[in-house]
Amino acid sequence: DGAASGPAPARAQDLTLRHRVEDYRAGDLERRYERLAIEEDSLVNYGFLPREHLALMHPREAARAWDDDTRRKAADILDFVRERGTVHPRDVERHFAHGRMTNDWGGTSNASSHLLDGMHYRGLLRVRRRESGTRIYEAVTHPLPVDDSPDGRARRAAALIDLVVRKYAPLPAASLTYLVRLLVGYGAPHLSEPARAGLTLARERLSSRRIDGTVWFWPADENPRSRRHAVDDRVRLLAPFDPVVWDRRRFELLWGWRYRFEAYTPPPERRFGHYALPLLWRDRVVGWANVLMCEGRLQPTLGYAGGAAPDGSAFRDALEEELQRMTRFLARR
């Protein structure tokens, strides 16, 4: 239904975690963030990851070096943050009045916020918490790597590749290459050379199989025939960026149709809707749903890749159960 519109039902991280954390509710991650051993940071994209993984990437060396003026401003902000303990971006702007700047998309943005983002990316700051979605920062010092020799960098790059493969496998060969490019583009630009070499080694040590002309890779210690991969009869409404559907190349290879995230597509040109959630039934994504909460009631708009819902009461019952779970997930604690 291309006319479906409206905000996302919840943040992408919440929609992802609801399938992996028992009794998870929208907003739980933000509410519990300060008590958990996790961080907001970049890996192959920006998001949340276990704190233990930061040592593989930090101190991070950005691909674009700061000039002397930017380094001076960052040092002044760092002193300010250390003195205050935690800061809201508006506090930094009020104190320093850095003004506006042209951003990477050609528009203008707050120069202080841009500097804070850069300091966070380089490991000078961490996100202590969020207030109404805004990052509240504090100073942090990442210890230097125990071994920063070429061999040490190679081991960290290999560990990062293993991390993303375990998260997104099974991967077509082209997707494996793409993920490593994202890894060195976002999470570890300073490890680009060992990561390229690590990709070659990964292709040799990962399990692989050629199927219908496509080579697939997955961790060597994973058995695709294991009982833990057995298919159940549940319906799951997935986030557009869930690891199951994030790789659009793999999506089309597995399920034979092309899904698009259309939040930034002009409404008249949408096929799926503003924030369509891929609909997984057993081991196949068979359609999508746009969902809204109105006066405590879930209002789903469904679409199917084959033009109609799967036949039978098993699907209808499983879909109803998933809509009930979604209603509970979106309800306030």
Rank of each mutant, 00 (worst) to 15 (best):
L171F: 05
P172G: 04
A173P: 08
S175G: 04
L176K: 05
L176I: 01
L176F: 02
T177R: 15
T177D: 07
Y178N: 06
Y178I: 00
L179G: 10
L179F: 08
L179N: 15
V180A: 03
V180H: 02
V180F: 00
L182F: 09
L182P: 04
L183Y: 09
V184F: 01
G185L: 06
A188S: 11
P189T: 04
H190S: 10
S192E: 14
A195F: 00
R196F: 00
R196L: 04
L199V: 00
L199R: 00
L201I: 14
A202H: 00
R205M: 01
L206A: 03
L206N: 04
L206W: 05
S207G: 08
S208W: 05
I211L: 05
I211G: 02
D212A: 11
D212M: 08
D212F: 02
G213S: 05
V215M: 03
V215Q: 15
W216S: 01
W216Y: 04
F217A: 01
W218C: 13
P219Q: 03
P219H: 03
D221S: 13
E222C: 09
N223V: 07
N223K: 06
N223E: 07
N223A: 09
R227I: 11
R228A: 01
H229Y: 13
H229F: 15
A230S: 09
A230C: 07
D232T: 07
D232M: 02
R234W: 07
R234K: 13
R234G: 10
R234C: 06
V235G: 05
V235W: 00
R236L: 11
R236P: 08
L237M: 07
P240M: 11
P240I: 15
V245A: 04
D247V: 08
D247L: 15
R249Q: 13
R250E: 02
R250Q: 06
L253Q: 10
W255N: 10
W257N: 09
R258D: 14
R258H: 09
Y259V: 04
R260K: 14
E262A: 02
E262H: 10
A263R: 05
T265H: 03
P266K: 15
P266T: 14
P266E: 09
E269Q: 12
E269G: 13
R270E: 03
R271D: 01
R271L: 07
R271A: 14
R271S: 14
R271N: 13
F272S: 14
F272D: 01
G273I: 07
H274I: 02
Y275H: 13
Y275I: 01
Y275V: 08
L277D: 01
P278C: 09
L279Y: 10
L280G: 09
L280T: 05
L280D: 02
W281H: 12
W281I: 03
R282P: 14
D283T: 13
D283V: 13
D283C: 12
V285S: 08
G287S: 06
G287H: 04
W288E: 00
W288M: 15
A289V: 15
A289N: 13
M293F: 05
C294M: 15
C294P: 03
G296W: 04
G296Y: 05
Q299V: 09
P300L: 04
T301N: 14
T301Y: 02
T301G: 05
L302F: 01
G303S: 03
G303Q: 09
Y304S: 06
G306Q: 10
G306K: 07
A309T: 12
A309R: 09
A309P: 13
P310L: 11
P310W: 06
P310V: 06
D311Y: 11
G312D: 08
G312H: 11
G312A: 05
